[in-house]
Design a protein around this nucleic acid. Structure first.
Lengths: 325, 325
DNA sequence: AAAACTTCTGGGAGCGCTCCCAGATTCCGC
DNA sequence: GCGGAATCTGGGAGCGCTCCCAGAAGTTTT
């Protein structure tokens, strides 16, 4: 294996200076077509690939973007949501010479790395509670976009699904089905996504009984416990809006164990459209890949310093009717 | 926001040369304790963080490792297996100054990037068929470890779960239950994991009827189709070993639709221990996080040029008894 | 007590690019 | 034609580190 060629070799072969090669490589203006072509040929002939480290060093740019997933959320990576977002993020990056660096934040240790100039921007997803990471990064001048509305508010732009409206739609569907005792299994109260979906349910339920609320932690296990508690409090309930498909799975299991038929005895609507279930789950779909693309697009715009961008973006959701409700 | 401090500032503050600071930073020998401490203090006081680009450039090291997921597998990222592996990989990297760069390979475009010297090594997971990427990287002298046995064989070391033995255990369990007509929903034939689990089933079934095989593509959808086909071919089947939990979900759905009770009429065993199901699935568990840690450990050893390493590692699996069989 | 090491430290030459500056060439309009 | 602008190109100074080399200080050997 011979040494990889450098920019000077390309320059020599093309019969130009390395400045010119650099211009061609970076698509700078003021290069004649003849020269440009000569350089292109030389690049291909030598199989030249620019050295990222040198580019970063000389160009004061890292050519890398961090995708931060908070590790306290542990299994969150297994979440189809996160996976889909990753795909979208990656797709939006295609064609750029930018690397995606994956980080799992143990609170504290990530901040200094990120503000240390190793990345040009950061995408922070699945935040819990009032994680100070966002403001830390923002205050250090690093372009940041949050995936999901930050509970703490603040100046950081974010992209989120319209959880509120999705929940309203789901609940209204349950109402239109003629259900009278509609419960909800809500998400944790320290995440905006949990809160927003609960608010949507409350909104749609206005004028009705809204005490049938149980909280789960976005796991099947949590959904099961919540369902059990709900069933104890109100054995006659005939519908439940579950704030996440994965929790719906647990709920379905409990409903089944208690001899309730779905949807005959109890109608169930989930959220996410992320898991296959028996019976097929009526749910609120969010386009996670689009979510990811939008996130990345927004961050790139932020990095390039575009003006007049909307502070945040809400992506629409849609109700998918299947057999559980 | 003031400029980040450089190594010279640290050196000045500590009253030593930047060579010495570099030594301390890299844990090189021949530095007196006094000096070392002085440098440490200066680093903390200035909040100094070394510039990765400069280190890479000067040190002929990228300080980055690529995690390559083949994109043709599309939704593979959503796979709890991949997610778990990522967590493990990340955990093993903790404490090192090495970045994890996530790449999704569209066949072809990743190779040149990786061999271009941007990373010190690569982890390639969820390969399909005879993807030439592995040998391409290996031939270029890049340290590589595969997650999952490469179907094509070859000299690349790999880490895998003992899929064969896991399948044998699962099938034997079905036999010990007294089941007489045992089918299997196998994975795709272009992935070693699919093949190995099928071989395990065949091995355990030796002396019995082994024609009840249907293939799925590791999706719930695929599992459902396979189950339907199986039921058509042998309505009397009383057990099925499904090569992936996610396919078992689809199978369960079909079984349910056809009025078969699980486990009374048909016993079901899955593989992965990755999804919650109704009824709770008896399955073969693999410790995915350990898988990831092992992968990374192996790659780091490879990069450091350790000798006498086993070419590959097989991780044990265990049967988890729940109610589906 | 001198020689021969060993341990510690500083100096400085790059690593392979980008980007600023200045010079050369071409293109206009009057 | 000629001045001035626009277009094109090369030279070279860094970017912030690592690592080699050589010298200073301290230790052991003969």
């Amino acid at each position: 294996m011979t040494r990889r060629p450098g920019i000077d070799e390309v320059a020599a072969l093309a019969g130009v200076s390395k400045s010119t090669v650099s211009r061609v490589l970076n698509g700078a203006p003021h290069v004649s077509t003849r020269t440009r072509e000569a350089v292109r040929r030389a690049v291909i002939q030598l199989g030249y690939a620019p050295n990222q480290a040198a580019r970063s060093l000389a160009g004061h740019r890292a050519n890398a973007i961090a995708l931060v997933v908070s590790e306290t959320t542990g299994r969150v990576l297994a979440d189809p949501f996160v996976a889909g977002v990753m795909r979208g993020v990656h797709a939006e990056l295609a064609g750029r010479r930018t690397q995606l660096v994956l980080m799992m934040s143990r609170p504290g240790d990530v901040g200094s790395y990120l503000t240390g100039g190793h990345v040009d921007g950061a995408l922070v997803i699945s935040m819990h509670g009032h994680d100070p990471l966002l403001s830390l990064l923002h205050d250090n001048g690093l372009p940041v976009v949050a995936g999901g509305r930050p509970l703490a508010g603040g100046p950081v732009p974010y992209v989120d699904s319209d959880n509120f409206t999705g929940a309203v739609d789901a609940t209204r569907h349950l109402i239109s089905l003629g259900c009278g005792r509609i419960a909800t299994i809500a998400g944790p109260t320290d995440m905006a996504v949990g809160l927003d979906r609960l608010s949507g349910w409350r909104r749609a339920m206005s004028g009705r009984r809204t005490d049938l609320v149980a909280h789960g932690d976005f796991t099947a296990q949590g959904g099961a416990s919540a369902m059990t508690s709900l069933l104890t409090r109100e054995p006659e309930l005939d519908a439940v809006f579950v704030a996440a498909d994965i929790m719906a799975l647990g709920a379905l299991q409990v409903l089944n164990a208690h001899g309730r038929r779905v949807p005959e005895d109890v109608a169930v609507v989930g959220f996410d459209d992320s898991v296959p279930a028996v019976p097929p789950l009526t749910t609120v779909r969010q386009d996670v890949e689009r979510f990811g693309r939008m996130l990345m697009w927004r961050l790139l715009a932020e990095i390039e310093g575009e003006e007049g961008l909307p502070p945040s973006v809400l992506l629409p959701t849609s109700l998918v009717l299947r057999t559980s409700a």
